[in-house]
Amino acid sequence: MALNNITLGQYYPADSVVHRLDPRIKIVLLIAVIVAIFLASNLLAFVPIAAFLVIVTRLSKVPVKMMVKGLKPLRLILILTFVLNLFFLQGETPLLNLGFAVIKKEALTMAVHYSLRLILLVLFSSLLTLTTPPITLTDGLERLLSPLRVIHFPAHEMAMMMSIALRFIPTLLEEADKIMKAQTARGADFETGNLIARAKAMVPLLVPLFVSAFRRAGDLAMAMEARCYHGGEGRTRLRVLKCQKRDYIACAVTALLIVCVVLCGKAY
């Protein structure tokens, strides 16, 4: 098991305009782009969105290979979406007779449409996680959700939990590795056997890991209190998010994209 050299999330460090954008703006813009993708009512409308994706990817300096990797876990769903739409949608113009089924032109268009929509959704979302470190993302989310405090939504607490989780992932992985080695030294077998045997072998790993995680949680709570932590109230921040010119430009460009998509949809 490769527990060393783990990277958190799938952040791709680089110095680019996209990386430097305010995380709040990035999150909001992602939502706007998702709306644009759903607004696209014909294939022509996907052209500006795809062009936008290409430009942003180039600007972000993220290698295309990394982007495509994000699609991999979804390939089954993609193929299913395409095939099911292709065979089961009704249409008028027959395109190809396969003997057992007739593929219609309208069905093909819809299949391409749905698949493209999915691909774009995934690619834009991975662009956000590739260009934003998890901790910055957490920060952005906290700031965006903080107005919900009025209805008692625990935005600060959520963000704090997420950042503590991020902090402790490497620590707990290290510990899991240590426990695993200790159990292996005493004859435990994690590698062989069928699925059930291997799942059973995990029990002596998980029990000590859980016990220690709870002990850590207790210690950490004590340490946080000793350092005057008393919730989000009256707290100041080291990092203050401030919108800059580039953030406004990004907003304008995205707004333009939505207009283009709507116009292209009407062009037919």
């Binding site: 901790i135 902090r167 850590r216 210690d219 950490l220 004590m222 340490a223 000793a226």
Partner: peptide, 16 residues
Amino acid sequence: AGMVFQNPDNQLVATV
């Protein structure tokens, strides 16, 4: 009167 605890791993909160 600040306090520093025993386990170095269990008292650091942030990722940086």
